[in-house]
Simulated scan of single mutants.
Amino acid sequence: MAARYEVRHQPGKGYHFVLIATNGQIIATSEHYESHRACLNGIDSVKRNADAPVQDDTTSTGKNS
Rank of each mutant, 00 (worst) to 15 (best):
N49S: 09
D57N: 12
N64Y: 15
A28K: 10
H9A: 05
I20H: 04
A52Q: 14
Y5S: 01
D57F: 15
A2Y: 13
A52N: 11
D56V: 11
S65A: 12
S65T: 10
N41F: 10
S60I: 13
I27L: 05
V54R: 14
R8Q: 05
T61H: 15
H16I: 02
G24V: 02
M1W: 15
V18Q: 01
T22W: 14
H16A: 02
F17C: 00
E31P: 03
H36G: 09
I20F: 07
V18L: 04
D57W: 15
R4Q: 06
R37D: 05
G12D: 02
S45A: 13
A2I: 09
A21P: 03
G24S: 06
A50R: 14
D57V: 12
T29C: 08
Q55C: 14
I20E: 01
V54F: 09
K13Q: 05
H9K: 07
A3Q: 12
K47W: 12
E6G: 08
I27P: 04
G12Y: 05
A21H: 10
D56F: 15
I43P: 00
G42H: 03
Y15R: 01
H32P: 02
R4E: 02
V7H: 03
R8Y: 07
Q25C: 08
T61M: 12
A2K: 13
S35R: 10
G42Y: 03
Q10E: 04
Y33S: 01
M1L: 14
H16R: 08
Q25H: 10
T22C: 08
L40G: 02
